[in-house]
Design a protein around this nucleic acid. Structure first.
Lengths: 194, 194, 194, 194
DNA sequence: AATGAATGAGTTTTCATTCAT
DNA sequence: GATGAATGAAAACTCATTCAT
C-alpha cells in the first residue's frame, strides 16, 4: 500500500466516522482532516470537493457492501436459498458495520443518493442484474406477488432496513436468533400466499 | 382564519416545501421567509429558532398524520381489518402528501427525530397504545412471528415506507391497484406462516 | 397628573430600571415597553428614538440630582460648610438611588454624555455657575491647590464617585459613619496643605 | 515577530482603536477586521468569540499597565515615595496611552470587568498584594484615614482617574506641571490630617 | 506533495422602527 | 392616541475552499 493510498484511505475512514456520527452537514472538512491526521488542504488533493468526497466514499462502501453480500453467492442453488443467502449477508453486514449502514442510509436519502439510484436504474451493474434475475425468476415461477420487479425489491428490503435502522438507533435489539426470522419476513413480504 | 394564523401557516407551509426539497441544512431561513412572503425577522416572531420551527412543524404534521391514519378506525372490527385499515390509510396519506412524507422521513432520521422516538417509546401516547394493543393481540393469538413487539412494528412498516420512498424518488410508481398488495406485504412480513 | 404624563413617566421609569441593569445596548426597547406596560410603538409617540429617550431620561435625572444636591444649599454659610453640604448630598443621593447613579455613570461615559458635558462647559447653567463660584472663591482664598477650576472639580469629585462605583459593584460597603470621611477625602484632595 | 503574531497583534490593535472610540457594542467585528486588514473570519482563528477578544485584549493591556506602573518600583524606599512613584507612573501611562485608558475604563465598568474585579479581590495577584502592603503599612502607621483598605484605594485613585477621564474627553488639559499636584491630590484624599 | 493560515460568502438571529388597525 | 405585528438592515459566527510556503 503506497503512501498516497494511505492518506486517501485515512481521509475516507475519518469521513465515514464523522458523517455517520453527525451527518453530512454537521461534519466540517476541518474535523475530517484533523481526525485523518492530515492538513486541511490535503483533502483537496485527493478529492475535488466535499461533495466529491461523499460520492467517492459512497462508491467505496457500495463496493464493499456488494462484495459482502455476494461473497458466497452461487447461482446454481435453489431460489429461496439464494434469497436467504443474500439477505442474511446484507443484514449481518449492517449489524457488523453500523457506520457504513448509517452513511449509506443517509446517502440514499440525500439528493446525491437519489440521483445515483436513478442513474443505476437506467444503467444497472452486474450485481443489480444478478438481483434482477433472482426476482425475475421468482416472478415467472409465480413465487412472488404480482407487482413490478422494483416494487418487489423495495418491499422485500424494507423490513430488514427498518429493523436495522431501529436497531442502530437503539430502539430495538436484533439478537442473533432473530436473524433468520427477519430474513423470513423479507421473503414473506413479497412471497405469494397459497 | 385569523391574520395571525395565516402568517404562521404560511411559514410552516413554505418550510415544509423547502425542507422536503433540500433537507434541513440546505434550507436557509431566508429562503423560507421569502417563499412564505414574510420578512426574515417574522419567522422569529412565531418560532424561537430554526430548530424550534422544525420541531413545531413535526408536531403539526405528526398530528395530521395520526388523524389521517385513525380517521375511520374502529376497535371492534376483526384484527386483520383493523390492520389493513391503518396501513392503507398510512400509505394513501403519504402518496397524497409527498412533502409531508419526505419531511417526516428526514425528521425521524435526524437527531431531533431519534430523540423524539426514544421519548415516545418511554412515554407512549394514545395512538401508540392503540397500535401496541393491535400487535399485542396478534401475538397472543399466535398470528405474528415470535419477535418483540417493536421489531414486528419495524418489520411490518418497512415494506410500505420503502415502497413509498422509492415511489417519491420516482424509481417506482405506486398505482392504485397496488395499494392492497402493498398492505398485504406489510401483513405478510410479520404474519406467522402455517 | 394627566394620562399622558403617566405613560411618559412609566416609560422613563422602566427605561431607568433596565438601562441601569443591562446598559444601553443590552436593553431592547421592547423590554422597556413591556416593563412600562405600554405597546412597543407607544415609546415612539413620546420619544423620537431610543437615543432621544436616553437623552430625555438624562435630563430628567440630572434635574432631580441637582435638586437633591442643592435642596438645602445656602450661599451665605462658610465655604467649607457649603462644600460639605453639596458633597454629602451628592453622596447620599447616589447611595439612596443606585439606579440613577448607574445610569448617569454610564451616560457620562458614553458619546452622548461626553458631548453633553462639552456643551455644558460652553454654556453653563445656574447650578454649574454656583459650583464655579464656590471653587473660584476657594481658589482666591488660596484654600485650594493651584490648578484650573475644572481640574479641581474632577479631583474633588473623583474620590466620592469611585467609592460609590465600587460600593454599587459590591466591592466595598459604604457605611453611614464613613460618609463624613468620604466627604472629607473630597475636600482634602483639592485643599492646599499648609 | 512571526507572521502569526502579526495578525493577532493587528486585530488586537484595531479592536483597541475601535472599542476605545465606539464602545464594545458600537464596534462590529466586521469593522475590526477591516481596520486590521484581515478577513472577517480571521478574527475567529485567534479568538473564540467577540467576548473572548475583549477579555484577551484586557489581559494584554492589564499586563502592560502593571508593567508600566511597577517599572521602577522599589519596596525599600519610604512609603510616600513608593506611593508617588506608583501614582505618577499610572497617570503618565494613561496620558500617554489614551486608547488603553478608555478601553480599561469601559472594561471595568462592564459586566466583564466587574466580575473580573470581584475575582481579583478573592484571589489577588502579586501586584495587588504589593499595593495592599503599601496601604496596610500606611494604615498601621496611622498615615491614612480610618477606613477599610479597599475604600482607601477607591478614594485615592478616584481623583486621578476622574482627572484623566476629563482630560481624555477634552474637558480639561493635564499639563506636565500638574502631574505632581494630581498625585498629591490622590495622597491627600486618603492621608490623615494632623 | 503537503500544509494550514487566511478568506469571505453565507447562515442564523436580533431589535429599532414603522404603520395598518 | 395606542397598539403590537411586521419588517429588514445589521450583527456574530461558520466553514468549504484556496494558495503561499
Amino acid at each position: 500500500m503506497s503512501k498516497i493510498a494511505d492518506k486517501r484511505a485515512a481521509i475516507l475512514s475519518a469521513a465515514l466516522d464523522i458523517f455517520a456520527e453527525n451527518g453530512f452537514h454537521g461534519s466540517p472538512t476541518s474535523l475530517i482532516s484533523e481526525k485523518a491526521g492530515v492538513g486541511t488542504g490535503t483533502i483537496y488533493r485527493y478529492f475535488q470537493s466535499k461533495d466529491d468526497l461523499i460520492r467517492e466514499l459512497h462508491l467505496e462502501l457500495d463496493g464493499k457492501l456488494q462484495a459482502a453480500i455476494f461473497a458466497d453467492y452461487r447461482e446454481e442453488v435453489p431460489l429461496r436459498q439464494r434469497f436467504d443467502n443474500l439477505y442474511e449477508n446484507l443484514l449481518r453486514y449492517f449489524i457488523d458495520n453500523p457506520r457504513e449502514c448509517r452513511f449509506l442510509e443517509q446517502f440514499y436519502n440525500s439528493p446525491y443518493g437519489i440521483a445515483k439510484r436513478r442513474a443505476r436504474k437506467e444503467n444497472p451493474g452486474e450485481k443489480e442484474a444478478c438481483f434482477a434475475r433472482l426476482f425475475d425468476e421468482a416472478r415467472q415461477r409465480q413465487a412472488f406477488k404480482d407487482l413490478p420487479e422494483e416494487m418487489l425489491v423495495s418491499l422485500s428490503i424494507g423490513p430488514m432496513l427498518y429493523a436495522v435502522r431501529d436497531h442502530l438507533a437503539g430502539l430495538v435489539a436484533i439478537e442473533d436468533r432473530m436473524v433468520p426470522l427477519i430474513v423470513e419476513a423479507c421473503w414473506d413480504a413479497v412471497a405469494r400466499r397459497d
